[in-house]
Design a protein around this nucleic acid. Structure first.
Length: 259
DNA sequence: ATGGTGGCGCGGCCA
């Protein structure tokens, strides 16, 4: 059995106790983190070793930053999209026990039409090109992380208010569908889910208490793995803690053995 | 209520 999870922690320095507690109780084989906001020299490798996890990371001060925590050591790390010379640390790929894991912190995009939005669309285009290469080399592949895209209206608490806005705009959704069209499956939608299931809630306006959220964190699986997926859920428990991340972890399980 | 909250780091950016 393989249990793999993704969690945008919005500062690993602040959220380290939450992440350590969650690892101790949930025991995933792999946890992909986004928005660590730490330079690599400051990564708390020893704290994770004490609870039985290896750590691979690609970080920077203040912004962005991705990491993979795993029971098995990570091999064949990749930290950049091909053809994108980018100081922003948003990508970490690794192979774990024969499974290729692509951990992403997709750009937010700020507002439709902004420079950051154009950067996001260009980033997603280059991501799609890279995905084709990775899929050709790795039949057992999981792409997961904070996609900053709500793929469908049912992933949005108020689709009318959000129509055409960043995270929901048609070009972003088209880029997501292009990823899916390469043969990946949104594991969350393989199973019956509660209506109004979300993975992110704004800190403002008591959005979590009112469940005014978006589902923008995803675990996508190649066909070999999707056929063996037997569950995917959003764990809202950490979002209820004191000083939480604005995102909840998403967890998927597969009937495969790591080798 | 065109604001609101949170992280970083100490003014303003980013989400």
């Amino acid at each position: 059995m393989l249990r793999i999870a993704t969690w945008n922690v919005n500062s690993l320095k602040v959220r380290l106790p939450h992440v350590l507690d969650w690892l101790r109780t949930q025991r995933p084989d792999i946890l992909a983190l986004q928005e660590t906001k730490l330079s690599d020299a400051d990564f708390p490798t020893l704290d994770f070793a004490e609870v039985g996890y290896h750590a691979a990371f690609s970080g920077q001060k203040t912004y962005n930053g991705v990491a993979i925590l795993s029971r098995l050591p990570a091999q064949h790390l990749v930290t950049d999209l091909p053809e994108l010379d980018d100081p922003q640390r948003r990508v970490l790929a690794a192979t774990l026990g024969g499974v290729r894991v692509l951990n992403l912190y997709v750009p937010n995009g700020q507002a439709v039409g902004s420079d950051k939005y154009l950067y996001k669309l260009d980033w997603l285009n280059k991501l799609n090109t890279w995905l084709a290469t990775e899929l050709s080399q790795h039949p057992k592949l999981v792409m997961l992380g904070d996609f900053n895209i709500a793929p469908e209206d049912r992933d949005v608490h108020d689709p009318i208010a959000w129509a055409g806005q960043v995270l929901c705009s048609e070009p972003e959704r088209a880029a997501f569908r292009q990823i899916i069209a390469q043969g990946l499956t949104d594991t969350f939608r393989l199973f019956p889910q509660e209506e109004r299931s979300f993975s992110w809630w704004d800190y403002r306006a008591a959005a979590f208490r009112r469940n005014l959220g978006l589902r923008i964190d995803h675990i996508l699986a190649s066909s070999v793995l999707a056929d063996r997926c037997h569950g995917c859920r959003i764990d809202t428990a950490p979002r209820r803690l004191e000083r939480p991340s604005d995102h909840a972890p998403v967890v998927a399980e597969f009937n495969i053995n790591l080798n």
